[in-house]
Design a protein around this nucleic acid. Sequence first.
RNA 1: GGAUGUUUAGCUCAGCUGGGAGAGCAUCUGUUUGACGUACAGAAGGUCACAGGUUCGAGCCCUGUAGCAUCCACCA
Length: 850
Amino acid sequence: MLDKRYDHKKVEEGKYETWKKKGYFTAGDTSKQAFTMVIPPPNVTGKLHLGHAWNTTIQDITARYKKLKGYDVLWLAGMDHAGIATQAKVEQKLRSEGISRYDLGREGFLKKAWEWKEEYADNIHKQWAKMGLALDYSRERFTLDEGLNKAVNHVFKTLYDKGLIYRGERIINYDPELKTALSNVEVIYENDPGKFYYFKYKVEGSNEFLVVATTRPETMFGDTAVFVNPSDERYKHLIGKNVINPANNEPLPLMADEYVDIEFGTGAMKCTPAHDPNDFALSEKYNMKRIKCMDLDAKMNENAGIYQGMDRYECREKLVEQIRKDGNLIKIEDIVHQVGHSERSGCVVEPTLSKQWFVKMRPLAEQALKKSTVEFVPERFNHTFRQWMENVDDWCISRQLWWGHRIPAYYNDETGEVIVSETPINDPHFHQDEDVLDTWFSSALWPFSTLGWPEETSDFKRYFPNDLLVTAYDIIFFWVSRMIFDSLEFTKKSPFKKCLIHGLIRDSQGRKMSKTLGNGIDPIDVIDKYGVDALRYFLTTGSAPGQDIRYMEEKVIASSNYLNKIWNSARYVLESLGEDFTSEEINFDKLHKVEQDILVKLNNTIKNVTNYMDKLDYSLASSYLYNFVYDDFCSSYLEMSKVSLLNSDEKYRNQIKNVLVYILKNIIIMIHPYAPFISEELYLALPSHKESIMLETYPEAKKYAKVDLVNVTDMYKMIQDVRNYKVTNKLAPNAKLIIKLETSDDSFNELKPYLERFSFAKELTISNNISSSGIKYIYKNASMFIEDDISSEEKEAKKAKDIALYKSEIDRCEKMLSNPNFVNKAPKEKVEAERNKLEDYKAKLKELIG
RNA sequence: GGAUGUUUAGCUCAGCUGGGAGAGCAUCUGUUUGACGUACAGAAGGUCACAGGUUCGAGCCCUGUAGCAUCCACCA
């Protein structure tokens, strides 16, 4: 027998290991249709957070649902080497031991990094197990493993040969702390307070001067021109002359270009081609010199004169002071402006001219826009994807790191020859590029590289394209879009059919969870306290697709209470079976109405739940199941079944027990994708069952003969009215009342025992002709009178209330029906329904008024 | 500047192809009815942001306005 209380710890124990050992998570049954997902590989940098828990639960629900639906489900496990993030963590650890990566050298450092990876992969495996994820570990991959390296090299080489990968000197975002280049999406712009410095630039050979404003005086050593707008009347006469750079007294040509905004600042802009992407673009247009005044570590270089070797901010301060002394400082304004920070280190990135590898995006993006068949859910994210693709810049893919796929380019310094090769080149005249590739370069191949591509493996043939990819909206740019264009380029197919996008999880106040705020929630703590099933249920229900959610402990508790409800309903069902239970077919046609009623309601529930499961709307699907479990099953039918079991012969009793077991089993299977552990526990307690709920098939709605169940609905309403009557009249819930039913419908006799019990009737008469002074309640197929010693005043009040209600309803109906537009244009069923209601209300009113 | 989302009960949020406003929590009243007090029974609580429009009918569709949030692009 089940325990009185649902104990999540006991329920969770051992199940995951069993499932795994039995091979339920392993794909490969070729007699079934395949269904494929690949997990978004988590970074091997630390613990998984609630966002991961959410993301993986959605996938696990899908995997388990599809398994129950009879698919050969492959949900491929894997992790990401996360180049920058991991290297930063490993270096940090080394630093705490007083070692730098250069002390160890590339090889020594990589050894440490792999040790780190093993440790954290182990953590992640444990967390996946806690979450109950039905991941196929037999095919687990790592973005830095050998097979994926082959895929990476193949892709690099192919794109290079096609001219879609090139090496060039361009402005890139440089992280001076981690000492590596970044791609545009790795830069986060924040509103930082800063200063706007206004400097006097003297015009050469004249007494005139103009004012240039800048936020970055230290870059003035790299200036090669000052630009104004050609139609700016203030400066027109000066165009073509030289002005004097107040930082170093060098002459700068005053040039004109439409790019300059007349309204902004002073309308005169200094141009620093080597440290600003826009200025770089101007320098290309006018074929200007590009002078770097900073090194990659954000220290001033020889072009900064006496400031050489100084930090960029220190130089700024000193230089402004010097210009002020020279009398060329006009004013300093406090402003708030957008400053780019490194996604990983958080430090201010330095746009710098540098030689890096790039993916030429335009052709790939155009192909993706034209050929992608990926269906985003919700649909609106398709826009997000397309808009980004339409405006994408070339992708800087080289990183000055060691942890990653090393760029397969080899240089001969003597001849200047460059060879890109999929296999290592051992010629001593050549040396390999020192840099590695952006992590996302390898993640972008994940849906197919994990299946053995570029080899035409059987897995690749069977499981590609994937059916579904699940991820949060914040990595559409980083990952989803890159998978799409790489997949189209290399496999000629979209990587997955659908892409389900979910939101981000926030704290209870709606703030992003972050380390600095210290408001993060460790899923493991939640699991320890409330159980993983409750956490999973909370994460995947009660929210709309694509929306952010807030972590609310009360909601986790509510989830846990719901599971406890199911637990106890199961306990009741199992306890009521007794020794003499035998499993048998349910004969719907011969069942009593209350039993038929609940089976019909279950049928509708199965239809609704399945419908929304198929649409990937797990939140809406769960709400249909929830309502059925709570209202229809537990609050209504379960109570009725107690009467059914008392008042029937042995043969029928066994039918009822079978109904109970059948409903319970269906509930358990439908809740299984959300709550795998408790459902397995309850499933194994059923009188007959397979080895595991994972081997079950998903419920299907049955085809029952149509039956009229209006009087069952009436009965439930009667019970509620009686209860309500007692509360409003301050009677005890079990107060005995005289209840009379006036009806010509014989089937109410069948419902009499149920009514008797739940109204605690002292006396219950059913007749087609009742005379009573009691308070009257009118239903579809019957009227109910409640008699007690309540004053006639109160009875009159109740009557008056009813009359008013019916009158207003009649008004409403008549108004609608007298509207020719409604009668003519609304669907026939709606009009008919209104007519029926009107008649019904009129009859009720007539009875009350007499 | 562009785009997207959002505004519904005290709070957090659902709400299907347009057809009589829902849940959880909180509140109030009551309850040893043999599954469950992690519960049960009942109650109260809403001008669905605002203004127009379309429609027989709008929380839902269209237009506009306002607040909040996010993303993209940015001006030196």
